[in-house]
Amino acid sequence: MHTVIKRRTGLASLNLRELWEYRELLGFLAWRDVVVRYKQTYIGAGWAFIRPFLTMVVFTVVFGIIAKLPSDGVPYPILTFTALLPWQFFATAFSETANSVVGNGYMITKIYFPRLILPLTSMAVAFVDFLVSFFFLLALMLYYRVTPSPRILMLPIFTLLLITFTIGLGLWFAALYVRFRDIRHFIPFITQLGMFVSPVAFSSSIVPERWRLLYSLNPMVSVIDGFRWSILGTAPLYAPAVIIGAIVSLLLVVSGVYYFKQTERVFADVM
């Protein structure tokens, strides 16, 4: 085994084989975060249900019953939860990923491992919650006797889009946060305001046609619409939005990885 230590630059240092060799570490760190989270709480894994459930109840009451927003003929709780599922994943995964490098600073200054492991670990942990919530949604559909359409087979594609967008944005913020600690105040801002900008509490069909393309620049629009479309089979999918969302997400991932790799060599120095 021959290792060369010298100044690294840009994407040339993106060593995927090495990342693969460290997959066990990723597994262990993710396992640690999951186990620790539930060891410290009384309700434990119940939190994975409770958070989306309570949000769903509040949304149903405020928007469905009080504001009477249209629900495309689906029980409002299900309409909301189908959107909350990807949104909660985005909110959790994004803020955890953005925090992952600074939060593990003590490891970064003491030992070497591919730094990308840290944001990837946060993504993995959030994905576990996502799966738990997904089963909750299935139970909810059973309760309201909503039959999923065969389009549910398309769900992995929208999940992939969701993951791509989240990690792209997360990587940017994780690296920026190391250098600019102001980012800390910006992260909750994105997850809170983002929810109102994205069609979580409403159906994107209420957005006027001429604004649709601009609105689709937020990839969460196509993700949430895609989730609704494949799970509930409601409104037809607006294809240009999905393409725009995918392009934006891919650009974010490529530039995010690049910026992360570019910055990571100073992580230990400024930590």
Binding site: T3, V4, I111
Partner: peptide, 23 residues
């Protein structure tokens, strides 16, 4: 040597599996 930070100049070649115990 532990690859925690990069050198600004120069190079180190290590032939073998490395473990570092800074803590």
């Amino acid at each position: 040597l532990s690859r925690i930070t990069d050198p600004t100049e120069g190079q180190i070649d290590l032939y073998g599996r490395v473990a570092s115990l800074l803590e």
